[in-house]
Design a binder for these strands. Structure first.
Lengths: 190, 190
DNA sequence: TCGATACGAAACGGTAGCGTATCGAAAGTG
DNA sequence: CACTTTCGATACGCTACCGTTTCGTATCGA
């Protein structure tokens, strides 16, 4: 009954939200700007989402899920380098604006905060589960809680470098991260 | 010549800025709110600071410099526990709102970003220099770059836990941080 | 005492976004 | 075709804050 909603409107709205979120940050993101960039009227947006927090949560949930590279290399060090390098690129190029924008937004909006943490946990799990299962399956001798340690340390150090230090995560840094921090901690013997 | 500026106004303005910054975040911080809470007129604020970025930079610079506890315990592990615990408390109770608020603000304001990084580096140095000099002086066998590693990892992991995971940095976590991450990395032999 | 400056209070015009309402046209369903 | 809902466009009143100006008063130095 009645005219059905246009799915392309949803896509346009959510992608406009993501790009604006990256550019401007959560606080400065306005529904009006989303309407402008997406080509949708404000009415169309308010019909779907109650307010900004609702819209942003939907947009972050919608964004293409991060899919880390499956470990194709031979050794553990090479796999770690690939995984950490991918993570660094992901954070630096795509996520940092989004993450940084959301850090502040989460504080004023507990509902958004909980949603964000749910999504971050999901991505973190997807990032560590399969690669480490693979590495362990290949007979690498890792610490029992290697996956948890990786997920706890690698994103933290990368984000700290990008946001606080303001320095790039180039290849040298990734090697430093793997050789000086991750490998010593994750290898069984230590 | 003429009436000199009242230093108590400065204090009131900067402290109001800091508390509001922690509560609301950078974007939502308004000069009017600072005027309201500090009891100063907007005129008085604009006479001192050109705009919000200028005010915030001054406030962050003013805030009482973090002074870590001098290592009073006996062993390296105890000193690390004290230092990491103090850092966790500092971040969780005071800084996190401020840091989180500034992450977003830094993006839109390169001037503020550079000032913030300068201040963060200063505090980081103050935090690591003396305690590690003391520990090394006590004859502990540390990795050459122990201080750098500590400054690179500890704040990053703590911030990640508080902001991303949204879980508290209780005593159990600090012990985990020291025993499972810091000690294995900082000890010379590994 | 006098001149200069700081101070609080208030008002100003301007900008921006909020969330709502109304309208006619479009696009489905039965 | 009749009905229902969506969509774009536009206007609305509202709120908040901006950065500036004006005014009367307070407080210093010379």
């Amino acid at each position: 009954m009645g005219r059905p909603r246009d799915a392309r409107r949803d896509v346009a709205i959510l992608e406009a939200t993501l790009s604006l979120l990256t550019e401007l940050g959560y606080e400065q993101l306005s529904i009006e700007a989303v309407a402008g960039r997406s080509g949708a009227a404000k009415t169309t947006i308010y019909r779907r989402y109650r307010d900004k927090a609702d819209l942003v949560a939907a947009a972050v949930d919608y964004r293409s899920h991060a899919t880390p590279p499956s470990p194709a290399a031979v050794g553990l060090r090479e796999n770690l380098l690939a995984l950490a390098g991918w993570l660094a690129r992901e954070i630096a190029e795509q996520e940092i604006g989004l993450l940084g924008a959301l850090f502040a937004g989460m504080r004023g909006d507990p509902r958004l905060a909980e949603e964000m943490r749910r999504i971050l946990r999901r991505d973190e799990a997807a990032m560590t589960d399969e690669p480490f299962r693979k590495a362990i399956g290949d007979g690498e001798r890792l610490t029992p809680r290697a996956a948890e340690l990786f997920a706890e340390i690698a994103p933290a150090v990368i984000v700290h470098r990008v946001v606080v230090a303001g320095e790039p995560c180039d290849e040298r840094f990734v090697e430093h991260l793997v050789d000086d921090i991750l490998l010593p901690l994750l290898l069984e013997g230590r």
